[in-house]
Amino acid sequence: MDIQIDMISQEHMREMTTMEKIRFILDEVQKGKIVILESGLSPDEEAKLIETTMLEIATGDFTGIEIESYPPSHEKSGVLGKIFKKTPRSRLTIIGPANKMKTIKKDHKLISAIIMSKADE
């Protein structure tokens, strides 16, 4: 079983527009890849990602995405984060195809994802 993982740096994310990010994520995930974003999406981008995912489920065999981010959005990381409440925090986000990935455990400190091979399905 080959699983390809794409890691996208914060710098790279910053250069992309919202739709470019969403298109990139959904194209990679629909190829069966797992995408890890060094810094996550804004709440608005998250909503657009869910919306676009739904449009693509409705038109094909795609069944959607698993998406998890760490740390939780409300945790203000670092000293700056504590002083300026609105400072953008980096949130590691992992996104994969729903039919291949399942989150088995998640809390404030840990995400474990399980990747299923075709044989397990």
Binding site: S42, P43, D44, E46, A47, I50, E68, P72, S73, D107
Partner: peptide
């Protein structure tokens, strides 16, 4: 159920924003 899912985080984030 596990409360810490992306859909819950997305709704919370949008209302906060």
């Amino acid at each position: 159920e596990n409360p810490f899912t992306q859909v819950n985080v997305t709704v919370v984030g949008n209302m906060e924003a």
